[in-house]
């Protein structure tokens, strides 16, 4: 969709902007040995650096959040080109991850100043991904409250649900999870932290390989999970294995659903519910060599939050992978 690099006069990095419906991914690589991006990759491997948030006023967002205790990453900066202007500012969040506030009401260009439109003869069809439903951060031992507090106090989020280690445990591992959400529901940021278990949890595995806190998964929404997952599998995306026994009692847990259970079973799609409805979800294996970041595909059927019914199935699926990696 857009590109910045040597051809646009940028010498220290190259960035590609990709889009599918409302989801925009920016992939950035360093071009010189002294770029700080190298250090990030050396520490963490490939991973999410920026969760950019669309705001009406990036200057005010920076002032209000830094006033409330956020550490500044980037002071407000206004950039212009022939398409208009964009104002950006940034603050730090968990680990080395940052939030950049983007004000783009007065911008009509392909992405933002400094980027040019990127056209390619190769444009594979989309897979039905619509928008980012939620993004999960893994934080270290004892850091849960710090970051829940950060999103509440600095960002004005509210805690929607909380799952403790009794809700989220298998025979071997445990963790805690708290869902932080904006009042308008457009941003959902669950925070995970490790809890005591007999073996090493996936959160600890993540923290070890990522060298600290960071984004564990990006959940992308679809209107048809079966079509999306089939397309992704055909194109080589690998999903976690869900044992057929998961489906033995799933309808007792979630009640009636529109989908054919046999089809969900064939694709390993999990079903869960909250007070308002149900949801269908499925996680990929890590998309990197380090067992760090992965994606989740989610389709909501009334549920606005999360249930706790799938944690066990998901974790046991991940534990099987950990076993193979020797990291359990």
């Amino acid at each position: 969709m857009a590109y910045a690099g040597l051809e646009t006069g940028v010498k220290d990095r190259t960035s590609y902007v990709l889009q599918q419906d409302k989801i925009r991914l920016v992939l950035t690589t360093p071009m010189t040995p002294d770029s700080p991006i190298n250090e990030h990759i050396r520490e963490h491997g490939d991973g999410v650096k920026v969760i950019a948030l669309w705001v009406p006023d990036a200057r005010k967002a920076w002032e209000e959040t830094t006033k409330r205790g956020a550490k500044s990453f980037m002071e407000p900066i206004k950039e212009e080109d022939e398409h208009g202007y964009v104002v950006r500012s940034g603050i730090h969040t968990y680990g080395e991850t940052v939030h950049i506030f983007v004000e783009r009401n007065e911008y009509k260009g392909p992405f933002m100043p400094g980027y040019r439109a990127w056209k390619s003869h190769y444009n594979p069809p989309p897979t039905g991904l619509k928008f980012i439903d939620h993004m999960v951060g893994n934080v270290g031992w004892g850091e849960m409250n710090t970051w829940v507090d950060f999103y509440a106090r600095v960002m004005g989020f509210a805690q929607l649900v909380s799952f403790d280690d009794k809700d989220i445990s298998t025979d071997y591992t445990a963790l805690m999870s708290k869902l932080m959400r904006t009042g308008n529901g457009r941003l959902k940021f669950p925070i995970n932290a490790p809890a005591e278990g007999k073996k090493k949890s996936q959160i600890e595995e993540y923290i070890e390989f990522y060298n600290g806190a960071g984004v564990q998964h990006i959940a992308v929404a679809t209107n048809n999970i079966i079509e999306t997952v089939s397309a992704l599998k055909d194109r080589g995306v690998e999903f976690l294995y869900v044992p057929p026994t998961y489906y033995d009692d799933v309808l007792d847990r979630v009640g009636e659903i529109d989908e054919d259970l046999a089809v969900l079973k064939e694709h390993g799609v999990l079903v869960d519910r909250d007070d308002e409805g149900y949801l269908l979800q499925l996680c990929t294996k890590p998309v990197l060599d380090r067992p760090t970041m992965f994606f989740e595909i989610i389709q909501r059927k009334g549920a606005k939050s999360f249930g706790k019914g799938n944690f066990k199935a998901l974790f046991e699926a991940i534990e099987r992978e950990q076993e193979n990696r020797g990291t359990l």
Partner: peptide
């Protein structure tokens, strides 16, 4: 929250990667 920090959604997600062309 709407008062001090209105958030309209996710603008983009940026990954730092070893080889952006191949990613």
């Amino acid at each position: 929250a709407e008062d001090f920090l209105p958030l309209w959604g996710t603008d983009y997600v940026e990954l730092y990667v070893g080889n952006a062309k191949q990613s």
